[in-house]
Simulated assay, not measured.
Amino acid sequence: MMKKTYFSLMAALVALAVALAACTPTGGEPESIAAPTEQPAAETVEGATDLEKTDEMSENGLQGVRWVLVSYLNAAGETVEALADREATAEFGADGRVAGNGSCNNYFAGYTVDGANLTISQAGSTMMACTDEGVMEQEAAFLAALQAAATFTNDGETLQIANAEGATVLTFRAVAPTALVGTNWTATMVNNNREAVSGLIADTTITAVFTEDGKLNGSAGCNNYMTSYTLDGGNITILPAATTRKMCPEPAGVMEQETAFVTMLSQAATYTISGNVLELRTAEGALIVSFMAE
């Protein structure tokens, strides 16, 4: 009965994903987020103190690792390899939250661990639709498999998640996160300084290189910029940038995009690296720029 329910759930999610693909938002629209119908906080183990819960969560080997999907159980009950050009990921936090990319959308959920038992709540996610073949189907199966989690095994390099019937529904490999310093970062999304985030104008490139001596430089789209930065844990301070003084008449809008990027850059308050993606955000949590490592 449980197996039929699980496969029915995955089939329903696949159908929903295909329907979503018919209404893909434009790159200029800010992304929206669908909250789960129920997103409970991570539950404590009955009779355990907060300290004991924290110790158990930290000793399971799930945290501090970026897990990248290798294979998953699809709606037909077949184990298939993950798409080579579309990563699905999971990162387990000490606060009882798991988040990552489902193949197209970012997602978040709660999780609890009790020995080898793993429970993951229904996930919320952004609501983009990706039209590349198989992407939305993989994401639907991936999210359904996460919610079906019952147990896990982890040898430090490979994480396997099984459902209540003991079938392996997800297999991940461990990947070290990309370093902030010394990496060539290329922007994929930028804030236009009008409370919206969009992809870059076609045929423009924004880059960033953080050096060990606290310097930050790159291309803002037309001109080169240079500034300095300091780190304090996950917090970052970036001083107002100086730039060269060229004028680029084409492509249309490049100078406005550059001005918005340079202006917003000094408002950065936090940074996060998830795999090969770097995000800079304001103190209020607004996305300033999303970079991808080259």
Rank of each mutant, 00 (worst) to 15 (best):
G233I: 15
A269S: 06
A293N: 00
T205G: 04
L265C: 09
T237F: 09
D85S: 10
L146S: 07
M264D: 01
P249Q: 08
F172Y: 12
Q160M: 15
T230N: 08
S32W: 04
N60S: 08
A88N: 05
D232Q: 14
D132M: 05
M10N: 01
E81S: 14
D232T: 14
V98Y: 05
F92T: 08
E46G: 04
N106R: 15
N106K: 11
T5M: 14
E284P: 12
M127Q: 13
S103F: 00
A208Q: 01
E46P: 11
E59I: 02
T259Q: 11
A150G: 03
E87C: 06
N192Y: 03
L20T: 00
A202K: 12
N193G: 00
T119K: 14
D155T: 11
T205D: 07
Y271G: 01
M264T: 00
L265E: 02
L239M: 14
T263S: 12
N154F: 14
G102P: 01
M127A: 12
T119Q: 13
T178E: 09
A75R: 09
I206C: 03
V80I: 09
R245T: 11
E87T: 13
D85N: 12
I238F: 09
P240I: 06
R86M: 15
R66T: 08
M136H: 02
A162W: 06
A76M: 00
E250T: 15
T204M: 08
T119Y: 10
T171R: 03
D95S: 11
E165K: 07
A145H: 11
M57D: 09
T119F: 09
S125R: 11
A202V: 14
G64I: 15
A220H: 05
Q122K: 06
D114H: 10
N191K: 00
D85R: 09
W67I: 07
E250L: 15
W67A: 03
T171Y: 06
G64K: 04
Q267R: 11
Y111T: 11
I161W: 05
Q39W: 13
M247L: 14
V175S: 06
L51P: 02
F172P: 09
A140F: 13
L200N: 11
V70A: 09
T126P: 00
M136T: 07
N154T: 13
N184V: 00
L287F: 11
M1A: 11
R97A: 13
M136F: 04
A34P: 05
F108E: 08
N217P: 00
M189E: 02
P249V: 08
M189C: 00
P25I: 14
L231M: 07
S219V: 01
D232C: 12
A34D: 05
K53N: 12
I161M: 04
E250S: 14
M189D: 00
A283F: 04
V289C: 01
I236P: 03
A88D: 03
E52M: 02
Q122A: 12
G234V: 10
A241V: 15
A149L: 07
L287N: 10
T153I: 11
A208R: 03
A90D: 10
